[in-house]
């Protein structure tokens, strides 16, 4: 039987860590970072009127 303490640690770290990884991307997207670019780079060329 698996160790329950380690299992609980694994669950919570994975559960919260997934949010910690992917939730900032949500805000990056709101800030205007285009999708599917591995590098943020220069985004000034995006016009302000872009959706």
């Amino acid at each position: 039987m698996l160790n329950e303490t380690l299992g609980r640690f694994h669950f919570w770290v994975s559960f919260l860590g997934a949010y910690a990884i992917f939730f900032p991307m949500h805000y990056l997207g709101l800030l205007g970072m285009p999708r599917r670019y591995h590098d943020i780079g220069e985004t000034a060329f995006i016009p302000a009127s872009a959706p």
Partner: peptide, 28 residues
């Protein structure tokens, strides 16, 4: 873009947690 290191660190921590799970599996 100060959140990039944060996301990287979070990804590293989550990856470490998977190692913990693997250790738990094999050890148990």
């Amino acid at each position: 873009m100060t959140s990039m290191p944060f996301m990287s660190v979070a990804a590293l921590i989550v990856g470490f947690a998977q190692l913990v799970f693997l250790f738990n599996l094999i050890w148990s």
